[in-house]
Amino acid sequence: MVSVKKFKPYYIKSDTDYVRLILGYRYFTIFINGEEYQFIPIRSKEIKINRKTRKIENIEDQFAFQKGNDVIYITMNELIYLPDFLIHVYDIAKPYYTDIQEQNDETNEIIIAELERLNIKRLIDKALDERDEQSFFTLINLL
């Protein structure tokens, strides 16, 4: 049976598309059949998570774990079936998901404000065409 004892990324990189959890020596420890194995960065050393879908992208990567001279390779596909592994990964990556949502919310608010301003200008033009002074002055105050 495999379980996670310790999981901390060495550092975290994020861009607009991905959150990358970079793993370092002794920052990731698992138990395999009651024996403790420590991560060593031989083959893969990062967990790549899509910020939009929140899914782990590099499921074919292999991670190496060592105990003494014994080295065991486990694929990401095998690791994602461990509930405690997924809990650790998503707890660490969670703050990076909200950043992209907040940016989208701010962008949406800017777009809506600009559309409202343009709509008021069109209504002002309509009030001028219809020679509706009351609507014209009311709309001018909204700008």
Rank of each mutant, 00 (worst) to 15 (best):
Gln38Phe: 08
Leu115Phe: 08
Leu21Asp: 03
Leu118Gly: 10
Arg54Ser: 05
Val19Ser: 02
Asp129Phe: 11
Lys121Ala: 10
Asp15Arg: 01
Glu60Met: 09
Asp61Met: 04
Gln66His: 00
Ala113Trp: 01
Arg131Ala: 13
Leu82Lys: 05
Asp61Cys: 07
Tyr73Gly: 08
Ile12His: 03
Glu57Pro: 00
Ile111Asp: 04
Phe63Ile: 03
Lys121Trp: 12
Asn141Thr: 09
Asp99Glu: 15
Glu46Gln: 12
Asn104Asp: 11
Lys94Phe: 09
Val2Pro: 08
Ile72Arg: 13
Lys13Ile: 12
Leu123Gly: 00
Ile30Gly: 06
Asp17Asn: 14
Arg43Glu: 14
Leu23Tyr: 03
Tyr18Trp: 06
Asp129Leu: 14
Phe85Arg: 04
His88Val: 00
Ile80Gly: 02
Arg54Lys: 15
Leu123Lys: 15
Met76Asn: 05
Ile87His: 12
Glu102His: 09
Asn77Pro: 00
Lys55Ala: 08
Val89Glu: 02
Lys8Leu: 11
Asn141Ile: 02
Glu35Ser: 13
Tyr18Thr: 08
Thr29Phe: 04
Asn108Asp: 04
Ile120Asn: 12
Glu46Lys: 09
Tyr73Lys: 12
Ser135Asp: 09
Asp125Gln: 13
Phe85Tyr: 14
Ser44Asp: 05
Pro83Ile: 03
Gln134Val: 14
Tyr27Pro: 01
Ser135Glu: 10
Glu60Pro: 00
Phe63Trp: 02
Ile74Cys: 01
Ile72Cys: 03
